[in-house]
Simulated assay, not measured.
Amino acid sequence: MIRVLVVDDERLVCAHLRRILEAAEDMTVVGEAYDGAEAAEAIIRHRPDVVLLDLRMPTVDGLATVEWTRKLRDPPRVVALTTFGLDEYVLRVLRAGAAGFLLKDTPPEDLISLVRVAADGHVVLSPAVTRALVSGQADRQSARTRALALVAELTGREVEVLTCVGEGLSNEQIAGRLYLSKATVKSYVSRILTRLGCANRTQAGLLAYDADLVRR
């Protein structure tokens, strides 16, 4: 079973998400929290696999919660919940280590599928919104320059794998596209994260966008 913690300061939202997720046979909502402080306690108590986290909350906000979660020995996959229009804040959360983000109006069937993807260790991003976010960065040129310098240190095959990560492909999908084994892809991804100084696939994917490896 995939253990999910739902965090949102609106109790109706939490109840709605619980109803959607628990309709799936392989998912259970282990708890709800209504601000960042409660979320920290619930993560320690319930040890969820995935945390669906609202960004704007009282007491402790989503960014602080993501940063705290990353320090845990075995952190859950944190997926930010947002509404369109929080561009800069969403980017800060992704760069802080969130596994991705979903819009709150994501269709129920898609939400279930994406939680499964996140639990499996892959990036959960809304491609159209992500492109808009990255394209709209105030420091776009600075980010691009840094990304290009980092990517220049990679081998050709590593760049191909990074491009696939930026497109949100799973290891299995990358293996199929590049005619590699899943084990080889996993090794490449691990090495790429280390060489780029990225904490997870989400950060590597954003760097791929910055370096213009992924079409906007």
Results as ranks from 00 to 15, higher is better:
55 L>R: 09
122 H>Y: 15
48 P>I: 05
42 A>Q: 12
64 A>W: 01
121 G>N: 02
43 I>A: 05
63 L>V: 07
119 A>L: 05
147 A>Q: 13
110 D>T: 04
61 D>L: 08
120 D>N: 10
113 S>V: 15
149 A>E: 12
117 V>F: 05
45 R>F: 13
85 G>K: 02
128 A>M: 08
53 L>V: 07
44 I>P: 01
84 F>R: 01
126 S>N: 15
46 H>C: 13
70 R>D: 00
112 I>C: 11
125 L>Y: 12
108 P>D: 07
88 E>S: 12
128 A>S: 13
96 A>D: 04
69 T>Q: 02
44 I>Q: 10
147 A>V: 13
71 K>P: 00
86 L>R: 11
68 W>T: 03
44 I>C: 11
99 A>D: 08
80 A>W: 06
136 G>V: 07
65 T>V: 14
99 A>I: 05
125 L>D: 08
49 D>A: 09
109 E>V: 15
58 P>R: 04
56 R>Q: 04
92 R>P: 00
53 L>N: 06
133 L>E: 00
127 P>Q: 14
65 T>A: 11
125 L>A: 13
67 E>G: 03
117 V>A: 13
94 L>Y: 09
124 V>P: 01
144 R>P: 01
103 L>C: 07
86 L>C: 01
121 G>D: 00
66 V>L: 11
145 T>K: 12
123 V>L: 15
126 S>R: 15
143 A>W: 03
91 L>F: 13
136 G>Q: 11
74 D>L: 05
63 L>G: 05
79 V>K: 02
81 L>C: 13
131 R>D: 10
129 V>I: 12
77 R>N: 04
149 A>P: 03
138 A>G: 11
138 A>V: 13
130 T>C: 08
58 P>G: 01
77 R>T: 08
52 L>I: 06
43 I>R: 06
134 V>S: 01
69 T>E: 04
94 L>D: 01
66 V>K: 02
110 D>E: 12
47 R>G: 02
149 A>F: 10
96 A>I: 03
54 D>F: 05
132 A>E: 14
62 G>M: 12
133 L>W: 00
130 T>D: 04
63 L>Q: 05
123 V>I: 15
98 A>H: 10
70 R>W: 01
148 L>G: 03
117 V>E: 15
114 L>I: 09
147 A>S: 13
121 G>L: 02
135 S>W: 00
44 I>K: 15
122 H>S: 09
80 A>R: 05
88 E>L: 10
140 R>K: 10
81 L>E: 06
55 L>Y: 05
120 D>K: 08
106 T>I: 08
52 L>W: 02
99 A>V: 08
151 V>N: 01
89 Y>R: 14
42 A>G: 06
57 M>N: 02
79 V>L: 06
48 P>S: 13
109 E>K: 12
90 V>S: 11
145 T>S: 07
81 L>M: 15
51 V>M: 07
111 L>G: 07
90 V>M: 13
88 E>I: 12
71 K>C: 00
66 V>A: 06
91 L>I: 14
97 G>L: 10
48 P>M: 07
69 T>W: 05
98 A>W: 12
62 G>V: 14
90 V>A: 15
114 L>M: 12
110 D>F: 03
94 L>E: 02
76 P>C: 03
146 R>C: 02
100 G>K: 04
70 R>L: 09
135 S>C: 00
98 A>L: 12
85 G>S: 04
72 L>Q: 12
143 A>Q: 08
110 D>C: 04
81 L>W: 06
86 L>K: 05
107 P>E: 06
105 D>Y: 00
